[in-house]
């Protein structure tokens, strides 16, 4: 059956069973591969996207559950026009292998919308669902603080 999705401001028609998780719709059907598969069980955060601005784990959101506008890492900014938070990630040289970072950035973007000046404790609380096997946490924390500051100035 055919489902209509709004992703990064564009409309897509997809033809997949409605229990397929959004993650795999994005990656294998729509071709947006920036959103990553890490665990499939809500334990790593690599698949984080926004629905109506809220961070959700796309591996846990079935096609039938999607209700609203989807934003993926590709919709947050592009290499030529990065969002403030992506720029902070580059400035702080956060990534090592980089595989977890789309999810980290999407989660952090949502944190900053909800809480424009997060403390270390706030960051720990919100970001603990996002695993990084390379251990980039200190730089993620620093990048979030500096993005927060830039957004205040903007």
């Amino acid at each position: 059956m055919s489902t209509t999705l709004r992703i990064n401001g564009k409309t897509h028609q997809v033809d997949l069973p409605d229990d397929v998780p959004l993650l795999w719709v994005l990656r294998d059907e729509v071709g947006l591969t920036g959103t990553k598969y890490g665990c499939g069980v809500a334990a790593c955060g690599a698949c984080t996207v926004h629905i109506n601005g809220e961070a959700v784990r796309s591996c846990q959101t079935t096609l039938a559950d999607v209700d609203g506008e989807i934003t993926t890492i590709e919709g947050l900014g592009t290499p030529k026009a990065m969002s403030i938070i992506q720029q902070a990630w580059v400035d702080h040289q956060v990534a090592q292998c980089g595989y977890c970072q789309s999810g980290q950035i999407m989660q952090a973007a949502n944190l900053l919308t909800d809480n424009p000046t997060p403390s270390d404790a706030d960051i720990e609380e919100v970001m603990q669902g996002n695993l990084c096997r390379c251990g980039t946490y200190p730089r993620i924390r620093a990048a979030i603080h500096s993005a927060a500051q830039k957004m205040q100035e903007a």
């Binding site: 947006l32 920036g34 592009t78 290499p79 990065m82 990534a95």
Partner: peptide, 27 residues
């Protein structure tokens, strides 16, 4: 030095093995 792979990795455009897409590819 600024890492040459940072922008790709901050924008979801870095291609990992799992992101390879070829015409007519099956999963």
């Amino acid at each position: 030095q600024p890492r040459v792979d940072m922008i790709e990795k901050a924008t979801g455009t870095a291609e990992f093995g799992i992101d390879v897409r070829q015409p007519g590819m099956k999963f």
